[in-house]
Computed example of a mutant assay.
Amino acid sequence: MTNITIRELKPEDLDEYFQYLIENFHGHEPLLLTPGDHNFEPDTPERRASRLAVIKQGLSLVAVDDGGRIVASAYSEAKVPDDFEKTWREVNENKPTAFIDHVYFFLAGIEKRSKLFERFEVSNVLYLNILSVGKTVRQQGLGRRLVSAVIELARSKGFPLIAVSCTSLYSTRIMSALGMTSIHSENYSEYKDEDGNVVIKPPEPHTSVNIMAMKL
């Protein structure tokens, strides 16, 4: 087995990280496996600027092999109550038309409706946005190992809570095994466009999004 080391995701990793996501995440994320041509461009200047701002918080981790190549990642950031409200306002500025707009609208709504901060009475949280394990190292427990490292990082930074939006059954199982509980869940089939059509149709067994959380 390849020797795997977990370390901080750093700004100088940005180019490699985007390439890693293109090869190992975007074609495997359940939401994006909805049938159809979605014309989604994963690498844009806007996405790079947004990702870089999060990376600079020093709360994201990557797993690298013995050659230093990124093989898995846990992209995390600090969030406060207004972040959910800000995202919700932004996605509501325009009516969703493109598929990816619907995805952002759906996820922002779930986060808002979870009432995460009110439920736990906290003012900040470490939020795990993307957990991804590369194709060559799957089924080796690396996802669980990464999340465990993120939990310890959150504790060391004094966060009272860790949370994540699980878009797949597999990530939900990982979080549950590590002590997180589901505080809000919505089925993909419940989200429909103005004509009443189900928009997001991931393959089985991914049927819902679960907001998972754990006090630290």
Rank of each mutant, 00 (worst) to 15 (best):
S165K: 09
V209Y: 07
K201W: 06
E152Y: 00
I174W: 00
Q139G: 01
H184D: 08
H184Y: 15
P205W: 11
S176Y: 06
T167E: 02
A177Y: 02
C166F: 04
I151Q: 10
S156A: 13
A177D: 10
R173T: 02
S148D: 07
V147I: 14
E152A: 06
S189T: 14
V199P: 04
S168C: 04
D193E: 10
Q140W: 02
M180H: 09
I200N: 10
T172R: 13
F159A: 07
G141T: 05
R144E: 10
C166G: 03
I162C: 09
M212T: 07
E194S: 14
I200V: 06
N210G: 01
M175N: 10
S171K: 01
M175R: 00
K192L: 13
L169G: 01
R138V: 06
T167P: 04
P160V: 03
F159D: 04
T181L: 06
S208T: 13
R144D: 02
S189A: 15
S165N: 13
C166H: 04
R138A: 08
M214S: 10
F159H: 07
S182V: 12
M175W: 10
I174L: 03
P205A: 13
K192N: 08
H206E: 12
V164P: 00
T167A: 00
G196Y: 11
H206V: 13
T167L: 12
D193A: 12
E204A: 15
N187K: 15
V147D: 00
H184C: 09
F159Y: 15
T136P: 00
K192I: 12
V209K: 01
M212V: 11
V164K: 08
G143R: 07
L161F: 03
M175E: 08
P205G: 09
H206S: 04
N197C: 10
K157M: 08
A149L: 03
N197W: 05
H184I: 07
E186F: 06
D195L: 14
G143T: 08
I151R: 10
E204T: 05
T207V: 12
S148K: 15
I183A: 09
S156N: 12
A177R: 11
I211Y: 03
L142N: 02
E152D: 15
G196R: 13
L169N: 06
A149S: 14
T181P: 00
R145F: 02
E204N: 08
S189D: 13
H206G: 12
H184F: 15
V198N: 09
P205F: 11
A149M: 05
M214R: 15
N197D: 13
R145H: 01
T172A: 14
A149C: 04
S182D: 13
A154Y: 04
L146I: 07
S171Q: 00
N197E: 14
A154C: 07
N197A: 13
K201R: 15
T181Y: 01
V199A: 10
A154H: 03
P160N: 05
T181F: 00
T172D: 09
Y191E: 12
A163P: 00
G141Q: 05
R173W: 03
F159K: 04
I211L: 14
M180P: 00
I174E: 06
V209A: 02
A177F: 01
Q139V: 05
